[in-house]
């Protein structure tokens, strides 16, 4: 199935010349500014986590043992698979296959909802045990970092929905880039918070 909404991905050099190193990257260059900014923000948060852990290594290690590594691993698999569907949506957009683009984006967004559901179960377990964002030490940072990441998952689902409504190749690449950034952040956050102890 073809659709006239699929435009050429190549950017006019004269038009894109002002983007410097971002020129020629897949999708809209502004998304790459956001991707780099978000990686810096999450990187700084993890550096802050490392600093806070130094103040109470035993307390942090004990708190980490309360986390469900299984839930974190499941969510890693869910996001990696979701990222695969987002990347396949870009491939489908290249083939001008509108039906497949929307199917892949829906699958990616659906798995995003699964991620949030698993995260919700984890949060509910922690809160039921009396550990919340107001708990000093590890759990305050855990809820801040993973909660901020979960908000990005919600935003990513909205972005994928918008892209599915206007599925030009550039739009799909731009939406997928945001989704892969969310994926990338989790791939780093999960081992730092759950595994390294």
């Amino acid at each position: 199935m073809t659709d006239e909404t699929f435009g050429p991905v190549e950017r006019d050099p004269a038009e894109g010349g002002g983007w410097g190193p971002l020129t020629g990257l897949p999708g809209n260059p502004m998304m790459w500014v956001l991707v780099v900014s978000e990686l810096v923000v999450f990187g700084m948060a993890l550096v802050g986590y490392a600093g806070a852990r130094l103040l109470d290594p035993a307390g942090f290690a004990k708190a980490q043992d309360e986390l469900s590594r299984l839930a974190g691993t499941v969510n890693t698999a869910v996001l990696l698979t979701s990222g695969l569907f987002a990347a396949l949506a870009v491939e489908a957009a290249r083939m001008s296959d509108l039906r497949r683009v929307r199917l892949m984006l829906a699958a990616a967004a659906g798995l995003g909802l699964v991620f949030l559901a698993v995260k919700g179960i984890e949060y509910a377990t922690e809160l039921a045990a009396g550990r919340g964002i107001e708990t000093p030490g590890f759990f305050m940072i855990y809820f801040l970092i993973t909660g901020f990441h979960a908000l990005h998952v919600v935003a990513g689902i909205v972005v994928l929905g918008i892209v599915a409504a206007w599925p030009s190749l550039e739009n799909v690449q731009t939406g997928a880039a945001f989704w892969h950034m969310v994926d990338l952040v989790w791939v780093v956050v999960f081992p730092c918070l759950y595994l390294l102890r």
Binding site: L39, G43, A50, L54
Partner: peptide, 19 residues
Amino acid sequence: MSNGLSALIGLTLVIVVGS
């Protein structure tokens, strides 16, 4: 871009593991 982002992530991991 790929190497720059890898360096950013690598630096974060070095700091966390190094701590």
